[in-house]
């Protein structure tokens, strides 16, 4: 199990990364989150990276993987709070995080997840009629 706590809020999981992650910790978080999406029947995952001073290719790959795995498990991932200097550096590094939804802060992230889940449920209800 990773040392990074995963909080459950309704049908969403919230992770706030507050430490400089070594690679094994990043892998452990990826595994834990994937397990929790299934065991908690989560529909949304929000990852707050506002405390991260850098995102290198390893952490970037972890964020991409979490987004891809949660998509396969019918959950939505939103990464929130990326610092401007981190965003500038990520793009220059060559990592566009194309598979990852992002929002400016936790409020906007939750609203984004809510909107996507509600839309999907509406579409399901429509199809079933």
């Amino acid at each position: 199990m990773s040392e990074i706590p995963i909080l459950k809020i309704g049908d969403c999981l919230l992770v706030s990364i507050q430490v400089d992650m070594h690679d094994r910790l990043a892998m452990a978080l990826q595994d834990d989150l994937t397990q929790r999406i299934v065991s908690d029947r989560a529909r949304g995952v929000m990852i707050d990276i506002s405390a991260l001073e850098i995102v290198d290719s390893f952490i970037g790959r972890m964020l991409n993987n979490i987004a891809a795995m949660s998509r396969v498990l019918d959950a939505v991932t939103v990464v929130v709070g990326m610092r401007p200097a981190v965003a500038i550096t990520l793009v220059e590094l060559g990592l566009a995080l194309t598979g990852v939804r992002t929002a400016l802060n936790v409020d906007k992230g939750l609203a984004m997840i809510r909107g996507i889940i509600d839309n999907a449920e509406h579409a399901d209800a429509h199809r079933d009629r």
């Binding site: 850098i54 290198d56 390893f58 610092r83 401007p84 200097a85 500038i88 550096t89």
Partner: peptide, 14 residues
């Protein structure tokens, strides 16, 4: 600057 710090720290990490 903060951006220059972030760039060299990220390069170092890689």
């Amino acid at each position: 600057s903060l951006v220059d710090q972030t760039k060299i720290v990220t390069a170092a990490s890689e």
